[in-house]
């Protein structure tokens, strides 16, 4: 009973520390999605695959979204005609390379600055590399899931009126229902509301607010799961077992990568989860958790399946897992 109460306290401690960052992440990602004009952004992206991937990895700074938020954004980017190099590197890097995640990592691991720095560096390198690798395939549709690829084609051939050709049920983005038709919110603003500034502001509030509630509820639910798993492992798994796994260089990295894939905790707050293993696991394995977790986990695979073919997801997973393993292994010899 005492042990259970202890686990509950640790569980609460994780939640209370993570809640402000989760809230901040949700508020920012909801607001910036409305304030940044994706079309203008796309027009300015470099065409060269390497530069595109390198820049795509940094776009996360403009869209501070974690794993759940970045898939809809990446889908919109692909639909808008962005190259796969940019979209994939954005998808992989955005959950790590954004101000809130860097801040929360700093709060958790401020006493080990190298973890914070290399988390960003490794994530950026992996995202750029994977983005470049997939840019070799010129025909985007080969990468994409059939139903998604079909939607891509009409968009490319008939740029001016995409909303008319695609079923509104399949389209991502926010919509306004107007005279029996659903219109994308962005075009609705630009045509109807932009003329009156006060109305424009009011109309943005409702979708902004709905997005906040939706993401908070979903990511919060995931956070509850992740925190519960961390607390249970800390209290109920024998210390000898954890230590024997956590002190060996290779097994500790592999164990933390597996844990990252299973736990699926949001990248904004995953540092606090990793912190509960800081005393028993090697630094390099914590780094592996922090780099691998935001890119691939059960939750994000589920979301990515709505864009990519299963085969492509397997390629990505293998590539990212190997790169993470090699990078963190090298790190373990230097730090």
């Amino acid at each position: 009973m005492n042990q259970l109460h202890n686990a509950f306290t640790l569980f609460l401690s994780l939640l209370v520390e993570a809640m402000p960052f989760l809230l901040l992440g949700v508020l920012l990602s909801s607001s910036l999605l409305f304030f940044i004009n994706e079309k203008q952004l796309i027009a300015q992206l470099p065409k060269n695959p390497f530069l595109g991937a390198a820049v795509g990895s940094c776009v996360g700074f403009l869209f501070p979204v974690c794993e759940c938020g970045n898939v809809p954004v990446a889908r919109r980017l692909l639909l808008a005609g962005v190259s796969p190099a940019v979209a994939i590197s954005f998808l992989l890097a955005a959950p790590t390379i954004n101000p809130i995640v860097i801040w929360s990592t700093w709060v958790a691991f401020g006493d080990r600055p190298s973890l914070v720095i290399f988390r960003v560096l490794f994530s950026w390198t992996i995202a750029t590399t994977v983005g470049c690798v997939f840019s070799i395939q010129k025909d985007v549709r080969f990468l994409l899931q059939d139903s998604f690829a079909k939607r891509l084609k009409p968009v490319k051939s008939c740029q001016p009126e995409p909303a008319q050709l695609i079923s509104p049920l399949l389209q991502s983005g926010s919509f306004i229902i107007e005279q029996g038709q659903s219109l994308p919110l962005e075009s609705y603003w630009s045509t109807t509301i932009a003329k009156s500034p006060t109305l424009a502001f009011k109309s943005k509030l409702q979708p902004f607010f709905d997005n906040v509630i939706q993401e908070f509820s979903e990511l919060g639910g995931m956070l509850v799961f992740g925190s519960a798993i961390a607390a249970i492992i800390q209290v109920f798994v024998p210390r000898e077992l954890v230590l024997s796994l956590g002190q060996d260089t290779t097994t500790s990295i592999l164990a933390m990568m597996l844990l990252a894939a299973i736990v699926s905790i949001c990248s904004t707050v995953d540092s606090f989860f990793a912190l509960s293993f800081a005393a028993t696991f090697t630094s390099s394995s914590l780094l592996a958790f922090l780099v691998f977790g935001p890119t691939i986990d059960i939750k994000s695979i589920g979301l990515m399946a709505s864009i990519f073919k299963p085969k492509i997801i397997v390629y990505m997973l293998t590539l990212i897992a190997q790169l993470t393993f090699i990078f963190t292994l090298v790190y373990s010899y230097f730090f």
């Binding site: 919509f175 229902i177 409702q206 939750k299």
Partner: peptide, 15 residues
């Protein structure tokens, strides 16, 4: 609100 565009992992209200 109308948030049907969101890709949801949980049934509504679960989280």
């Amino acid at each position: 609100g109308n948030s049907s565009e969101h890709i949801s992992l949980f049934p509504p209200g679960f989280g």
